[in-house]
């Protein structure tokens, strides 16, 4: 028993060795994917729970992608629902009108991807005002963008106008949501721990100093907006194929506000915070369902209290060690080791 305890203790102390092992993440992914496949084919989880998990996944994608702009870059975008709408409509039009019904099962990822790419291209356009305007002004620009998307969709009869779009099959399954969620977390985490991600962070801290240190701030902003809107589009596609019905009003400022709440609840500039925020918000809304309309009073109240007592959110500006590359996490330690080794080598000569 004490041996087991000691082993557990070593595992706690040396966890980074376990995580650094090249098979850790692949095994984690395969186990997760197998579980989600099992859960959706056999009756391990009931359909209601599965649906909630699907929403949690979609919300994680939305939160982590918006966090890139609002948390990491320190801008204030309220147009995230607009990108989501583009992804939702493009993916839905593809599965309903373009792809043959029988092949939808297999072409579904392509439809989702196309939705993401469409949203990313529009994100490229929204990046341009961010060169010139910052802070409140950019917030207004993105708000306007969100309204434009909504009214454009309402006025195109081919996509159903204000009545919306029907006829999607329920193609969003737990395994697919798991896949896209992990992909978005992985890609955004990778971006954050690269020179471009550090550029994004330095823009938040001091844009002029960042430019003066050689960071191509325009390039960095374009990358951040494109990646962020790409994943919003992905989430939109998944959302449309869960609900099997979309209309323009679903993607208005209220939806953007929902995502903002999840970002600021979980914590700005944190992957772990994004997961936490999306999870807590989605689950709480479900638990509070019996309250009816009153839950829409409870949630904002919670947000007000949060802003007073923890303005940066639960994980604000902190990251779970799990997501930090070892090179960054143990920079000092590795350097000391390296110096010691080279010192020993020269002493041995």
């Amino acid at each position: 028993m004490s041996k087991l305890k000691a082993a557990y203790q070593t595992l706690l102390n040396k966890w980074h060795i376990v995580i650094a092992h090249r098979f850790f993440w692949p095994i984690f992914l395969i186990v997760g994917l197998l579980f989600s496949i099992a859960a959706s084919t056999f009756d391990i989880l009931d359909l209601y729970l599965q649906l909630i998990l699907i929403y949690v996944g979609i919300n994680i994608i939305l939160t982590v992608s918006l966090n890139l702009i609002n948390g990491y870059m320190g801008e204030f975008s309220i147009g995230h629902a607009g990108f989501m709408a583009i992804g939702a409509y493009v993916a839905s039009l593809l599965t309903v009108n373009v792809f043959p019904q029988t092949a939808n099962m297999f072409l579904f990822p392509a439809a989702i991807l196309a939705g993401g790419i469409a949203a990313a291209l529009i994100g490229l356009l929204v990046a341009i005002p961010s060169f010139k305007t910052r802070g409140d002004y950019l917030a207004i620009v993105t708000l306007a963008f969100c309204m434009i998307v909504k009214s454009v969709l309402e006025n195109i009869d081919a996509v159903g106008g204000p009545r919306g779009l029907l006829g999607m099959e329920k193609l969003t399954t737990l395994p697919w949501v798991f896949f896209w969620t992990v992909l978005s977390l992985w890609v955004i985490r990778n971006l954050v721990y690269s020179k471009f991600g550090r550029g994004v962070l330095s823009i938040r801290e001091d844009e002029i100093a960042s430019d003066l240190m050689g960071v191509n701030t325009r390039q960095v902003k374009v990358i951040a907006f494109v990646v962020s809107s790409f994943f919003a589009g992905i989430a939109g596609g998944l959302f449309a194929h869960t609900l099997q019905y979309i209309n323009p009003r679903m993607f208005d400022i209220i939806k953007s506000t929902d995502i903002l709440i999840m970002v600021y609840l979980g914590g700005i500039a944190s992957i772990a915070g994004s997961i936490l925020g999306a999870f807590i918000y989605t689950i709480l809304l479900e638990i509070l369902r019996p309250l009816g309309v009153w839950r829409m009073v409870f949630m904002p109240l919670m947000l007000v209290l949060l802003m007073i007592y923890r303005p940066r959110g639960i994980m604000g500006l902190r990251e779970a060690r799990l997501f930090i590359p070892l090179r960054d996490l143990f920079a000092s330690k590795f350097w000391r080791q390296k110096k010691k080794e080279s010192g020993d080598a020269s002493a041995g000569d």
């Binding site: 550090r198 962070l201 330095s202 938040r204 801290e205 001091d206 002029i208 100093a209 960042s210 500006l317 960054d328 920079a331």
Partner: peptide, 9 residues
Amino acid sequence: RLFKELTVL
């Protein structure tokens, strides 16, 4: 004008 919230590295 350091990037205050970021690490020294």
